[in-house]
């Protein structure tokens, strides 16, 4: 078993399984930074997984397919923003409504588009390619891990960096964070909080859409019913555990990838019943959440001199 765990393949699996969660975690954190819990990530990912297949088969191009999917993701983010900000809908209930619509809507749309029930078996979609970068490939071990990863995995790593710079080094990032910290204070210095939250939710939707596209056009090469499988929810937990920062979220996503990869290896070696291993990521988050919040609470108490 140890041999399997220490192989570059194993680390590659971690990255592969972490990719969709990482995208969704970044999506959760930008929404959270603007002060909104985006629980609709699950539904947006599911919709995007389907639209990824439809658009890439329609345009015969993974790139165009991804672009269109990301636009749809942003659009769903905007719809969520419209209901939450304009119509004053409870953000959790609005998200639940979007998730429900996604569960039914994807099956219905797939049936209408191709006549397939639940699995897009008759659609010829185009998956995002795996790429190897010549120089990095030569680095021992690390090169083996990174080479041949999907282009979207690379993109997700890049997105961590871009999101970090965006949130902490640009004026718009500052606006987003200040609206999330204190809406009224931000308004008082002339920030249009509604506009800022709209932008944050649109970006959040677009990021989740990349995660969704990866599910059906990278991780797998077709759409199956309910394929987001709770990753949007995991992302909320991961983001929260990572303090809603892109870098923190990145490490927690890797933890999820690790648990998934471990589950794969242990399933083969049968040390434990696999149902127990499948529990590991959720149990890890649950404990992680408790520990993280507890330490935050203690820190606050210390600072306030209690």
């Amino acid at each position: 078993m140890w041999k399997a765990i220490l192989s570059p393949d194993f680390f590659g699996t971690i990255l592969r399984s972490a990719t969709p969660i990482l995208f969704a975690t970044l999506a959760a954190s930008i929404a959270a930074k603007s002060g909104i819990t985006n629980m609709a990530l699950e539904g947006i990912m599911l919709f995007s997984a389907l639209f990824g297949v439809i658009f890439s088969s329609f345009t015969h191009s993974a790139g165009l397919g991804l672009l269109l999917t990301v636009i749809v993701g942003g659009l769903i983010g905007a719809i969520l923003a419209f209901f939450v900000l304009n119509l004053k809908t409870d953000e959790i209930l609005a998200a639940i409504a979007i998730n429900l619509t996604a569960t039914g809507g994807t099956v219905l749309l797939l049936l209408a588009y191709s006549g397939d029930r639940g699995v897009s078996s008759s659609v010829r979609s185009v998956s995002a390619p795996n790429i190897t970068i010549p120089l990095i490939e030569k680095i021992p071990f690390i090169g083996q891990i990174l080479s041949g990863q999907n282009v979207l995995t690379w993109l997700s790593l890049l997105a961590v960096l871009v999101m970090h710079l965006f949130l902490y080094k640009t004026p718009l990032g500052l606006s987003i964070r200040s609206v999330g910290e204190n809406k009224d204070a931000a308004e008082s210095v002339g920030i249009n909080s509604r506009k800022v939250q709209y932008i944050a939710l649109i970006i959040s939707g677009a990021l989740a859409a990349m995660g969704g596209f990866y599910l059906s056009g990278g991780y797998m090469n077709m759409f199956t019913k309910d394929m987001s499988g709770g990753r949007g929810f995991i992302a909320l937990a991961a983001s929260s555990m990572g303090g809603n920062t892109p870098v923190g979220g990145f490490f927690v996503s890797l933890l999820f990838g690790l648990a998934q990869a471990l589950a794969n290896v242990m399933q083969l070696t049968a040390v434990m019943p696999y149902e127990i291993i499948l529990m590991v990521p959720y149990l890890t988050t649950l404990i992680g959440l408790g520990v993280y919040y507890y330490s935050q609470k203690k820190k606050k108490e210390r600072l306030s001199g209690k």
Binding site: G230, A237, S240, I276, M279, L289, Y293, K297
Partner: peptide, 26 residues
């Protein structure tokens, strides 16, 4: 968990549902 650690009950309740599922399967 919320009372003792202030962890958001929404997120932890989403996670715990999956524990129920896999425990049931086990």
């Amino acid at each position: 968990m919320k009372i003792t650690t202030t962890a958001d009950e929404m997120v932890s309740s989403l996670m715990i549902n999956y524990l129920a599922l896999y425990f049931g399967n086990y």
